[in-house]
Amino acid sequence: MTRINVRVDGVTYDDDVEPRTLLVHYLREQLGKVGTVVGCDTSNCGACTVHLDGAAVKSCTVLAVQADDGEVTTIEGLAQDGSLHPMQKAFHEMHGLQCGFCTPGMIMASVDLLRENPDPSETEVREGIEGNLCRCTGYQNIVRAVQQAAGEMRGGARAPSGDGHVSPAEVDTAAAPHVAGAQS
């Protein structure tokens, strides 16, 4: 057992872990952070993506001990003070999810993508999220969601506040302009 000290979604934890424990298993099984999921055993699907010290990592490729002294943000810690992150909001608005299993990882990866490239083209989004598999959506609405969030975070036309956070209540009324028959 090795002792680690790690901050996850704003809470500090001091825990003993087996050296072989993967970060994703530590999060799910020891901390109950079951919002982050496991979709494969070969680091291909990205369902387990979280932020470690501000950058996206596949938490199935990181040992828990490697997160010692680190700061982890999971999908559960992305919304702040009860208001959704613009990326969460955009996934909802653009119908960027169906079963939602890939969604935590997809959202965390997409947030990181915009950190590096705040205004990605469609191709750049597609290549940027290449490490995250979705079996349901065919990706088109995920791409739209990422671009929509990008616009909002850059302070685009409909950005409600500086950092783009909106309250969940606002979400239902936003339009999905790409769908025929869309109404607010």
């Binding site: 952070k33 079951v34 919002g35 982050t36 999971t74 999908i75 559960e76 992305l78 919304a79 959704l84 969460q88 996934f91 909802h92 608005e93 119908h95 999810l97 079963c99 939602g100 969604t103 935590p104 959202i107 969940p168 979400v171 239902d172 936003a174 999905a176 769908v179 028959g181 869309a182 109404q183």
Partner: peptide
């Protein structure tokens, strides 16, 4: 109507 999904609230927040 292109209603946004009720299901999403829990799925986008983990």
């Amino acid at each position: 109507k292109a209603r946004r999904r009720k299901e999403d609230a829990r799925l986008i927040t983990g």
